[in-house]
Write a protein that binds this DNA or RNA. Structure first.
Lengths: 339, 339
DNA sequence: TATTAACACGAAACCGTTTTCGTAATATAT
DNA sequence: ATATATTACGAAAACGGTTTCGTGTTAATA
């Protein structure tokens, strides 16, 4: 086992000072040709690499960014992480991932753990419990300490920081409109409780489209599930009693499961009933029939978030100016609707 | 913006030395009751938290573990990360995730980036390019430096380190045997090239089951795709020409897509043709019919890997003894086979 | 009263870098 | 020959902690 070599080791071997070694390795003009060559050769030979921790301590920059998300076993968050990771890596940053598992307490603990020097900034999406509780003090504390934060997807307006969201309202609006254009009359919505910022926005878009049409809103055509967890029974009862001819779902799973249910009843998709979901994941693509979805462009979102964060981290200026980027969703047409 | 407070700040305010503050906060017996109370109260008031980086530098422990995986938009890896994250977090560690994206170079760069003090150990799964190339020098260098490594799922025997795998051979063997017991005669295998350690093991299990039976092996019933990427055309051609009555696939996607193909041809699943895949993901559960799979217990795998790594990191002893844990797969019976 | 022990604290080294500043030795200008 | 500039390097502080060891003050013991 050959342990890592340090500047001190090189200095001792070559009988020069640590400062000289440090400067020589940085090709400083201050050091003579001879010495530089000697030091560099030695360093290369023993594969010297500066210690990241020491450098972090010195310049108070870790080149790490903390990502706190509710769940990782979820296609959307996964793609966001990928986007963040790719972009951050290209700029020399590493990504520390923490999972809140939809728990307020875990979110707080994770942030506290990272906020003590481990990272240069946060990218995060709020846990459902946090949104339900409406308590954002952990975020405020962090921003007050001067640590930059970028909130994505599940955001709150109560914290001053950069934000990246997709226009969920627009996505739902477009999807609902599509149904209307195709002559659907009984358009249902399967969503979750309103405390989730995204569900709220999607419901708004759905309502807007219906209000603008001659159909109007029938509150009983909206099923609000308590969380993103599947509730098979509730969906079954709902679909059987309301018999919609089109269903908009706030995620893939609700949609794919619903499709199964109506298929078992002998309905044809999309002739008798059409479906649109949110999240362009593997499920939509390989479902039978394939599912039309409002694509959220997670990877792009991650990329944009990472760029915003790193730009802020690296900007000297202490501008207290925050922006919210709104990404446009796209309707990915597949076989669950007519086309 | 209230910046973080340091020991020095407290010492200055309270007119004591830094050492006294440090000891007081650790409740050292050396410090008087009075002083301790004073210091602790002050620290609490100003919300003092020690700087992680400084501590890392001092005791040469970062409490970070590096996870290097080929891809994150993949259910299996995602569950492994979750397992790692949960376990590591419970023991006070953070997880730095790096993606090799199946590239050898990225794998090397990522490891080098992390190996210079950023982490206490690695948990990784090899990129396909690394396995294809058979070059493991980056792993050897790291282990020689005394950094513990745990390899999971996609491993190599050429590196001395701890390993965690599931018994892929057994999984494939059991699945194939299931087909045989159910009277299937034309049992196909859709896999990828052998350089992937897992594909190789699965193919071996498939062969073993057939060899033990009266059916024997028909090489033409094995489709080897060049990578984990979907190749719709190749699968279509294969299924049409070979007309199997049972298909074992090395992942979910191949299986679900294959099911679609035969359904379009009017075949009934599982009566005319049965399917079993690997990976118990969201796709299998919500496919139509739902897919029987060999579950790989990714979360368990992550947990076990994390435990092995952290135990090694925290053990003083420099034992040069490595173990390989083999987890048992489970067959999750769903509607794509008779039952 | 002299000696010793216990107590409470501070100085300083250390972890591995970077960077400022001071200075001896040499080179150039006057 | 003297003053000044340049070159090439080292000492030391700093980042924010932990920890060892030394020491002045008081209290207990002989």
């Amino acid at each position: 086992m050959k342990a890592k070599i340090t500047l001190k080791d090189i200095a001792r071997e070559l009988e020069v000072s640590i400062s000289t070694v440090s400067k020589a390795l940085k090709n400083s003009e201050e050091i003579s040709r001879d010495t530089k060559e000697k030091v560099q050769a030695f360093a290369k030979l023993y594969n010297y690499k500066p210690n990241n921790i020491a450098i972090s301590l010195k310049n108070k920059r870790t080149k790490n960014i903390g990502v706190v998300i509710p769940d990782i076993v979820h296609h959307f968050f996964t793609t966001v992480i990928r986007g963040i990771e790719k972009y951050a890596n290209a700029r020399g940053y590493n990504v520390i991932v923490c999972l809140s598992e939809e728990s307020f307490d875990k979110e707080v603990i994770n942030m506290e753990m990272l906020a003590n020097g481990s990272i240069d900034g946060f990218i995060m999406s709020l846990s459902s419990q946090t949104q339900e509780k409406g308590d954002y003090n952990h975020l405020k504390e962090v921003t007050e300490q001067g640590i930059p934060v970028v909130l994505f997807d599940r955001i709150t307006h109560e914290v001053d920081c950069d934000k990246v969201i997709i226009d969920d309202e627009l996505g739902a609006y477009q999807a609902t409109k599509k149904f209307i254009e195709q002559g659907k009359k009984k358009i249902a919505l399967i969503t979750t409780d309103d405390y989730l910022s995204v569900s709220q926005a999607r419901t708004k878009g759905y309502r807007k489209a219906l209000e603008e049409s001659s159909i109007g809103i029938d509150e009983s055509m909206i099923l609000k599930l308590p969380s993103m967890e599947m509730d098979e029974k509730a969906i079954k009862t709902f679909l059987n009693s309301k018999e919609p001819d089109a269903v908009l779902c706030v995620n893939e799973i609700f949609a794919v499961y619903s499709m199964r249910l109506v298929q078992e009843k002998g309905l044809r998709i999309p002739e008798d009933i059409s479906f649109i979901g949110f999240t362009d994941g593997v499920l939509s693509k390989y479902a039978n029939p394939s599912l039309t979805v409002v694509a959220q462009h997670g990877e792009k979102m991650g990329e944009v978030s990472a760029k915003m964060l790193i730009d802020k981290v690296e900007s000297e200026a202490e501008e207290e100016t925050y922006q919210t980027k709104i990404l446009e969703p796209t309707l990915v047409i597949r076989d669950s609707i007519a086309h």
